[in-house]
Design a protein around this nucleic acid. Structure first.
Length: 766
DNA sequence: GGGGGCTATGGGGGG
DNA sequence: CATAGCCCCC
């Protein structure tokens, strides 16, 4: 047997070698899930399965790329011929080959969130609706949700519940906006992110013999990573591909319900549950050994996640014996938090020789990054921020890309609006409004409406329009034949963008010019790269070097996919972006009520559970050192706000913490007796056993959180989660007291709770 | 047509 | 507070 199989533990090996039929791998954090996936694909390739009949769907381009590289190390270059990529990228590739069958051009444009929002805003205006009530981005997410659940505008009208929700929100015309939006996208030859799934579903469903059957035969082995984050529509497509008469049902899914953090965009845990129902012959493997993190990190993670109501049975454990306590850092302000984190990083580098690249600062919202930047800069620690505005969202880059998009697909309305009069060429807003009106009246795109006889504009405007059109038409003719780099450089100059940027000699202006030149460099790199073809699908090759393919590729990229330079930098990113990564030292920051958990989640118990899973993801990124921080005061919405420490801090026993900051502390409290890290996370969907699954504690209207001084041995207390209990012991320094409390109805005999976090009320003695 | 300044609005995570 | 959109003025 090949040597790489020897690197696997028993369960991992069994999962890897079970190649036939449906397989589900439930994989805890750090349990070697990527290794299982890559070795399984290597195993298939070594057995002689052709690479182009293997499909692997991931959530980021980066993880797809890494997976291919790791497979390549085992089986060689044919690894690159495996179909591996994000759902969106793979589906875009298939759609490119088949789009004409559903009335889209092969060169369809992909609208990003900004394009989508601005189109929706335009529609709202055209319908003369109140822009205060009809908020474009809120409507965008509702349309997105509908699409991800296969609800067309027509079906939407039949959903009494959704229509009622819109009426209640005073937005009865939402479905009309949805309908118009779909038509406008179609007319512009554009698909938004959801369309890449939605239109693929349509394509498969409406062309069972010509198209679906072809891909069913082609993809004999299908893998899905991060299955807990798939939505209804993604699962529906998978079913089309796998679930049919005579299918081998070789679907291999890997996921962890405890790490499901994308419910907000329609991901549903039901997919895991339904999976067991849909595939009765399913074989399930649980990867429960954590190879990543040390004792206290694993124990804390288990404690936190045990508060969630719905989860699959599993027990995560580690045999790593290092007992670095989790540092819990309290700061008075967000600025102090930034300073303490930067100073601790310096200390860790000096004392433990941890390189910057093994250190990450994680936060709930991208806006929190600023304070960390300031303090890292102050002490000269190099860092790199992921998230926030990506390269392709910068104005100057979008301006150039708009012209490139037009050259490929002039029907693209959003690109047209952006480019038509920038740089200025005498096409006024009034002229554009008239074009839009003609387009609406004739059901044409704006590009076509420009030539319509109905269009009543001055000769001067006509002349300007003609000049613009001729320029674009010329590029369009060459877009399919000419070298993409050469054409793009010409477009940059001929559009007038180059001169415009060159005229600005301010430092920002120079950097803008550098950015557009970087786009040209990226195109050049793209056209020069060589990828092995898929002989079965000459139409859908990933070595298509046209401008059109390039544009489709970049619209699916995020800044996490950009090449990091090889400097040794500290990573700053959101907790969402950190999923799947690991670092020797991790700082999880801003653990405050209304921030983490986010205030957006506070009213919904499911929302709190998702925030808790996010916290679980965050702390399990750490291999050796975990530091959790919170601030008592923080600038938010323009003013200083005082915040309570996050409820999640209360869910970790004090013996895992070493306290830093605040008055009179800074030394660890008594760690207490050693505890096995094998903290059981039991309970399952059918058999509720978790604390929150009980009837909720009746909260008296007069609930007041008691001051720590009021809690002494013998006190009767009411806790917001655990209900009534009696204090048996209080220990620790004055402002870090820990109480041991026996609760009346609790599966544990007693709990140790840090009073400064606890939501406790003193009850009268009985 | 461009720029400056005012106002309203958002405020979360991302392919 | 930061930003985007908008209006107004040049």
């Amino acid at each position: 047997m090949s040597s790489y199989l020897d690197e696997l533990n028993g369960v991992q090996r069994a999962a890897v070698t079970t190649t036939e039929g449906p397989v589900m791998v439930i994989a805890g954090p750090g349990s070697g899930k990527t290794r299982v996936l890559t070795y399984r694909i290597s195993y298939l390739l070594q057995k002689g399965v052709p690479p182009w009949s293997i499909l692997t769907l991931t959530f980021t381009n980066k993880s797809a790329r890494e997976m291919k590289d790791r497979i390549e190390r085992v089986v060689g270059p044919k690894a690159q011929q495996v179909w591996a990529g994000t759902f969106h990228a793979i589906f875009a590739r298939i759609l490119r080959a088949e789009a004409t069958k559903i009335g889209y051009p092969a060169n369809f444009t992909i609208y990003d969130t900004d394009d989508t929002t601005s189109l929706i805003r335009a529609i709202i205006k055209e319908m003369s609706l109140d822009t205060n009530v009809y908020n474009a981005s809120a409507i965008r997410s509702r349309i997105s949700l509908a699409k991800s659940n296969l609800i067309t505008p027509k079906l939407y009208r039949d959903k009494a519940e959704m229509m009622e929700e819109d009426r209640t929100a005073k937005r009865p015309y939402l479905v009309d906006i949805y309908e118009k939006y779909m038509a406008r996208c179609q007319r512009a030859g554009a698909m938004d992110f959801d369309d890449l799934l939605f239109q693929l579903f349509r394509l498969f469903r409406d062309n069972p013999d010509q198209v679906l059957e072809k891909y069913r035969q082609k993809f004999q082995y299908i893998h899905v990573d991060e299955f807990q984050d798939t939505n209804y529509l993604q699962y529906a497509i998978l079913r089309l591909l796998v679930k049919y008469e005579g299918s081998g049902e070789n679907l291999f899914i890997v996921g962890d319900d405890a790490q499901s953090i994308y419910a907000f965009r329609g991901a549903t845990i039901d997919n895991i549950l339904d999976f067991e129902k849909d595939y009765p012959t399913l074989q399930t493997f649980k990867l429960e050994q954590n190879y990543r993190s040390t004792h206290h990190i694993v124990a804390a993670a288990n404690q936190v996640i045990s508060y969630n109501r719905r989860q699959l049975n599993k027990t995560i454990w580690t045999d790593r014996n290092e007992r670095n306590l989790i540092k819990l850092v309290k700061s008075v302000t967000d600025d102090e938090e930034g300073r303490r984190v930067a100073d601790l990083i310096l200390e860790q580098r000096n004392r433990y020789h941890i390189p910057n690249s093994e250190i990450a600062i994680l936060y709930r919202t991208n806006a929190q990054s600023r304070k960390f930047e300031e303090h890292l800069r102050r002490i000269n620690i190099p860092y790199r921020i992921f998230g926030g505005m990506s390269f392709y969202q910068r104005k100057e880059v979008k301006d150039l890309v708009a012209y490139l998009r037009l050259a490929v697909n002039p029907l693209d309305e959003e690109a047209l609006r952006r480019a038509v009069n920038y740089p200025a060429r005498g096409i006024s807003d009034a002229t554009l409004d008239k074009i839009a009106q003609v387009a609406a009246a004739t059901n044409l795109s704006m590009w076509e409406a420009m030539l319509h006889p109905m269009l009543d504009i001055t000769d001067r405007a006509k002349k300007s329009l003609a000049g613009f059109r001729n320029m674009v038409v010329d590029w369009q003719k060459r877009a399919n034949t000419e070298n993409a780099y050469k054409l793009a450089s010409e477009i940059l100059r001929k559009s007038g963008l180059h001169d415009l940027l060159k005229g600005d000699t301010s430092p920002e202006g120079i950097s803008r010019l550098e950015n557009v030149n970087a786009v040209l460099d990226a195109i050049s790199e793209f056209t020069d790269s060589v990828v092995l073809p898929d002989p079965e699908n000459p139409d859908a090759q990933n070595n298509d070097k046209s401008l059109s393919t390039y544009l489709q590729t970049i619209s699916l990229m995020t800044d996490a996919d950009e090449d990091p330079d090889d400097r040794d930098f500290v990573t700053l990113m959101s907790t969402h972006a950190a999923k799947g990564l690991e670092f020797r030292s991790v700082f999880v920051t801003g653990l405050e009520e209304n921030l983490f958990p986010s205030f957006m989640s506070m009213e919904d118990p499911n929302g709190i559970d998702e925030e808790r899973r996010l916290f679980y993801v965050a702390i399990t990124r750490a291999k050796e050192y975990l530091t959790i921080t919170y601030a008592q005061n923080r600038y938010r919405y323009g003013q200083i706000r005082t915040s309570e420490p996050s409820r999640f801090l209360e869910e970790i026993s004090p013996e895992h913490f070493e306290l830093i900051g605040g008055m009179g502390s800074g030394r660890g409290n008594n760690p207490g007796p050693p505890q096995p890290a094998r903290a059981s996370v039991s309970g399952n969907f059918a058999n509720p056993r978790m604390p929150q699954q009980k009837a909720p504690i009746a909260v008296p209207a007069n609930f007041i959180t008691a001051a720590p001084e009021a809690i002494v041995p013998g006190t009767r207390v009411l806790h917001l989660k655990f209900g009534e209990g009696k204090v048996t012991q209080v220990e620790g320094p004055r402002d870090n007291k820990v109480a041991t409390i026996v609760f009346k109805e609790d599966e544990l005999p007693e709990r140790r709770i840090m009073l400064k976090f606890a939501k406790l009320m003193v009850l009268p003695a009985s």
